[in-house]
Design a protein around this nucleic acid. Structure first.
Length: 285
DNA sequence: GATCGGCCCTGCCCGC
DNA sequence: TGCGGGCAGGGCCGAT
C-alpha cells in the first residue's frame, strides 16, 4: 500500500507529466472517491491547469492555475494516480478520470478499496513561509522534509502518554509513517512498539528517527528505479520492497539479526511484527 | 484535552 | 464448487 516513498514517487511522476496542461473534462465514477471537498471537482477543474505537485506525508496536492484552489489527493490503502493513454482499457476500479487538451496521457484515479479520495481545497500559510491545503494543515512534517524539527519531535513524543508505535502512526507528530515502516524502524532500533514513549531516552528516539529516515530513503530508492517513466504509481503488487523487509509480514521466519522467530500480534486493528529477542516487550501495565 | 477503540470499504484467501 | 468469514490498514470520529 502507498506509504511515503510511494507517494513521493507518484508526486515526481505527476510533476513530470501532468503540469501546465489544460484540463478539458473530469468524470467522477464513484461517489466515495470525492470526499471532504469544499467545491464540486468537475466544474472547478475544467479550463484550469496544475501548476505544481507537492506533498506532505501521504497527502499530495496539485495547485491550480487560478492561484486559489488545489486538488488534494490521499491514496488511502489502495489508491493509484495513473497517467495512462486514453486508449488504455480502464481498470474496473477507475474512480475519477481527468482529461487534458493535449490528450495523452490522461490522469486516472484508481482505487480498489475506496479508502483514498480527491478533494478541492484552499491553501493556507504554513509555519515556514510556504502554503499547505487546509485539509492537511494539521499533519506534521515528514522525516524527509528539510524543515522537520528533530528536537521538537523528541519533546512532543516524550510528553505523550502512549506507546511508541501508536505515536509513530500519529500523523500529527510525524507524517508519512505507516504500519510497515513503523515496524521496520522499530526492529532496526530494537524497540518494542508497546514501549511507553515516556521511558525512551532522547538518544534512543534519535536512533529511531534515523532508522525511519533510512528505511524511507531505501524504499524511495528502490521505488524510484522500478517505475516506468510514464506510469507514475506503484504497480499495485508493489513487491519491490518486501524483499528488503526485516520484520513486517515475516511471522515465524527467523530474525535476520538473532534468528529468533518473528512474532505477530494484533495492534490498533492492524498487525505488528517484532522479534521477541531483539525487541523486548514491556511488562503488561 | 488527551487517548483509544471502532468503523469505513473491497477483494483476496482459506477453511469447510 | 461455492459460500462465509477473516484479514489488510489510514484516518476520522465518538466514547472515555
Amino acid at each position: 500500500m502507498p506509504e511515503l516513498p510511494e507517494v513521493e514517487t507518484v508526486r515526481r511522476g505527476l510533476a513530470a507529466h501532468s503540469l501546465n496542461r489544460a484540463i478539458t473534462a473530469v468524470q467522477v465514477l464513484h461517489p466515495r472517491a470525492v470526499r471532504r471537498t469544499k467545491t464540486p471537482i468537475p466544474p472547478l477543474l475544467i479550463g484550469q491547469r496544475f501548476t505544481a505537485a507537492s506533498r506532505r506525508g501521504k497527502f499530495l496536492w496539485l495547485p491550480l492555475s487560478d492561484g486559489e484552489h488545489v486538488l488534494v489527493a490521499h491514496l488511502g490503502m489502495s489508491g493509484q494516480l495513473l497517467l495512462q493513454s486514453v486508449h488504455h482499457d480502464p481498470s474496473p476500479h477507475l474512480r475519477v478520470r481527468i482529461a487534458f487538451s493535449s490528450q495523452e496521457p490522461e490522469l486516472r484515479f484508481v482505487d480498489q478499496r475506496t479508502f483514498g479520495w480527491l478533494a478541492v481545497d484552499a491553501l493556507m500559510p504554513d509555519d515556514h513561509g510556504g502554503r499547505v491545503p487546509t485539509i492537511a494543515a494539521h499533519i506534521a512534517r515528514d522525516p524527509l522534509d528539510p524543515n522537520f524539527d528533530d528536537d521538537a519531535f523528541f519533546a512532543r513524543i516524550r510528553a505523550k502518554d502512549t506507546q511508541i508505535k501508536r505515536a509513530l502512526l500519529d500523523q500529527t507528530l510525524v507524517s508519512g509513517v505507516g504500519n510497515i515502516y513503523a515496524d521496520e524502524a522499530l526492529w532496526r532500533a530494537k524497540l518494542h512498539g508497546r514501549r511507553p514513549t515516556g521511558v525512551i531516552t532522547q538518544r534512543k528516539l534519535g536512533e529511531l528517527l534515523g532508522h525511519i529516515r533510512e528505511v524511507m530513503a531505501e524504499a524511495l530508492a528502490q521505488g524510484g528505479t522500478s517505475f516506468d517513466s510514464l506510469y507514475v504509481n506503484v504497480n499495485g503488487e508493489s513487491g519491490y520492497f518486501d524483499r528488503s523487509l526485516d520484520a513486517y509480514g515475516r511471522e515465524g521466519e527467523p530474525c535476520e539479526r538473532c534468528g529468533a522467530p518473528i512474532r505477530r500480534e494484533a495492534f490498533m486493528n492492524r498487525s505488528s511484527f517484532w522479534c521477541p529477542r531483539c525487541q523486548r516487550a514491556p511488562r503488561p501495565q
